[in-house]
Design a protein around this nucleic acid. Structure first.
Ligand code: MN
Ligand code: MN
Ligand code: MN
Ligand code: MN
Lengths: 230, 230
DNA sequence: CAGATGAGTTAGACAAGACTAATTGCGCGA
DNA sequence: TCGCGCAATTAGTCTTGTCTAACTCATCTG
């Protein structure tokens, strides 16, 4: 049985990025194949294949050739730790430094590998132990436990529905900027005024007014429906 | 004329560490030779030699074989930038997160390579544009300008002298912890009660009381004398 | 002014992680 | 069931930064 040579040696930044990405793909219930990870990390499929092999050898993932990977218990612990750092840092950047939420993912992606755990914990305390990143994704606990992803796509809402935004797709800075300018952020209450069946656009009312959104946005907002008692 | 292939490409973490160290050695007026840098970075002399050659080729240092390096204008600009990041991060860690000053150098050494300039600037504003790191070393400006190192060794003080601590040797965590426990930090006023000529110990009075320090400490505290007008 | 000594440089190897090109295997459609 | 197309893997390089061992050069001593 070949195990990792150094028990508990710190993971390289590369390994951390692969693991975190595998974790995030698993979190939405997708299977984790070479191409998906390669594309998300902006790396060749060959590099990803090689890394899968390494991670498997170190006991961090299970790997079935031609069939993708999934995290082992150890891998999940490590990955949740990294995702935790990432999301706390995002919170720090938006809440304390006032940096726009459309840029913090990229920044946190660089910074996440360099923060000692102790620093992450101090920031967390200072921020009052937030539950989620600015985009609404849950911050894993120190024990590795993570809440389920909140919300269903706003696409599933019908005319007359009331809902609260819980989470937004965080992959596209352009989209995030767009959403921020319109106040479509976690915590915001929305009501669906109308659904245009022809082109799929929706008319929404928020506290700030009325706006029309297309499918792209309706698929990127994850909401909890609210039963109307008015 | 062989120049750096990529104009303004970001520097690798390794290059940043070498440059920052060269900068710090130059700042105290020492000449920068292979062995000194190798020792400070915990790296072999061969590696340092190789890096000197690369940095020279990229126009960041002047290099005379067997005779050390010194920063070019470009190299100084780059180095001051890194040192700036390092010292701002140290301030952040001590002032906002409450981490002991004996550990922030090590932490900042990891973190300094991952902070976008914009984040450093936001932190700086939030802290009220501090002039120095927690150990009293000046934070270079965005323009690359850096104040001179403040203070002279407390060793130069005679009995009866009054002084203010401006800066402390920041290389040894043990020493820093020791100093902190005794309140010997930048800004603190001290008076020399007595100097023992036999063993070089000094009796100091601070706001908190009286204490005796040996040469090791007297050489690690950098002070400005204060003319007594009592 | 000739060695010895030690710092500095060169030579050669290695590890991590990336790439491109070539190959292999899975699964689907005819 | 055969083969085709595409995804994944393997093969072979490259770059960066490190190491140890062998050397070479500057300098200090006698
Ligand atoms: Mn990352
Ligand atoms: Mn996020
Ligand atoms: Mn560093
Ligand atoms: Mn400092």
């Amino acid at each position: 049985m070949v195990e990792s040579p150094e028990r508990n040696a710190p993971l390289s930044a590369s390994r951390e990025d692969y693991l975190a990405d595998i974790y995030r793909i698993q979190a939405v219930g997708q299977s984790v194949n070479t191409g998906e990870v390669a594309q998300r990390l902006g790396v060749s499929a060959a590099s990803t294949s090689a890394m899968f092999k390494r991670l498997a050898q170190e006991g961090l993932v299970h790997y079935e050739s031609y069939n993708g990977v999934w995290l082992t218990k150890n891998g999940e612990r490590a990955a949740s730790h990294i995702v935790r750092r990432h999301r706390v840092i995002e919170r720090f950047l938006t809440d304390m430094l006032g940096i726009g939420w459309e840029r913090v993912d990229e920044f946190a992606n660089r910074m996440e590998h360099a923060f000692p755990d102790e620093v992450v914990e101090a920031i967390e305390r200072l921020l009052g132990d937030p539950d989620t990143c600015p985009h609404g994704y849950p911050i894993p606990g120190l024990d590795g436990e993570t809440a389920a992803l909140a919300g269903l796509p706003a696409e599933t809402l019908a005319a007359g529905d009331h809902a609260v935004i819980r989470r937004v797709d965080e992959t596209d800075p352009e989209l995030l900027l767009h959403l921020r300018e319109r106040g479509l952020m976690p915590g915001k209450a929305i009501a669906v005024v109308a659904v245009n069946q022809v082109d799929g656009t929706r008319t929404l009312r928020t506290g700030d007014g009325t706006l029309v959104v297309g499918q792209r946005i309706a698929r990127s907002l994850f909401v909890d429906r609210v039963v109307d008692d008015a």
